[in-house]
């Protein structure tokens, strides 16, 4: 697994200056390919096949009711977030501490690669659902995507925290556990506090999605904090 870069004659170990950060960006770009090969994609692939299959199979051949579609997108988004966390498990974490790039860049790259793939799959699932709904049915992609990205970021952040403390793939399951607890904790809130409104654009929909948007920085900050060097 080629995780370290071939050291060029001018590559300093710890770049600090402005020129150094430019070099770091180039190095990160160069690392994207090897990292993409190093990431364990199987869980995300399984979750993607599962999500797309579920979206395709549930009430197959019928016009889909928007509330069912909403549940499907939410389950799919949560699952993809949990599966993406597997990308943060670095089998060589102990050995690459001396690499030219700091840990947060490597973990950030893994997040971007896996998170990006998860969002792409989510969008594909969304498109296939929209195609099966009555034309003109309200099913707002922006609001739902914000929900999904929060779930994704929470999953990634939980996974990123877990891999700091333990080695091995099971660390990524922290994402699923944290998501399960949070979904349960937020789904059954009292009536005045609905975070998962069951009907698009109705009732507490706008308030809930303002909340999701405002909440987004929290898991992102958590994720960034979990990317710090382990020392």
């Amino acid at each position: 697994m080629p995780l370290t870069l071939r050291a060029g004659p001018e590559a300093p170990a710890v770049p600090t200056s402005r020129r150094g950060s430019g070099r770091r960006a180039r190095a990160a770009l160069a690392l994207a390919g090897p990292l993409a090969r190093a990431i364990e994609w199987a869980p995300l692939a399984a979750a993607s096949v599962f999500t797309l299959g579920l979206v395709w199979l549930v009430e197959a051949g019928q016009v889909l009711h928007p509330s069912v579609a909403l549940d499907l997108m939410r389950i799919g988004g949560t699952l993809l977030g949990g599966a993406a966390a597997f990308a943060l498990v670095d089998a060589m974490a102990a050995d690459v501490d001396a690499a030219a790039l700091p840990r947060w860049v490597r973990q950030g790259l893994r997040c971007l690669l896996a998170g990006g793939a998860a969002v792409v799959v989510w969008c594909a699932a969304f498109a296939s659902l929209v195609a099966r709904m009555r034309p003109g049915q309200l099913f707002p992609v922006g609001d739902l995507l914000v929900e999904a990205v929060v779930c994704l970021a929470i999953g990634l952040a939980a996974g990123a925290t877990a891999v700091r403390f333990t080695t091995g793939r099971q660390a990524a399951l922290a994402a699923v556990v944290v998501q399960l607890a949070l979904v349960l904790g937020t789904m059954l809130l009292p009536e005045g506090l609905q975070l998962w409104p069951p009907t698009c654009g109705y009732g507490a929909w706008d308030e809930a999605h303002r909340f999701w948007l405002l909440a987004l920085p929290v898991p992102v900050a958590w994720l960034v904090a979990s990317g710090r060097d382990v020392r």
């Binding site: 399984a46 389950i75 699952l79």
Partner: peptide
């Protein structure tokens, strides 16, 4: 043999039980 299989089975059952009303 994949770790993600557990969460996937859990999610499927959860979805079906949650949608039980229909």
């Amino acid at each position: 043999p994949w770790l993600i299989a557990g969460p996937l089975v859990m999610a499927t059952l959860g979805f079906l039980i949650f949608q039980n009303s229909v």
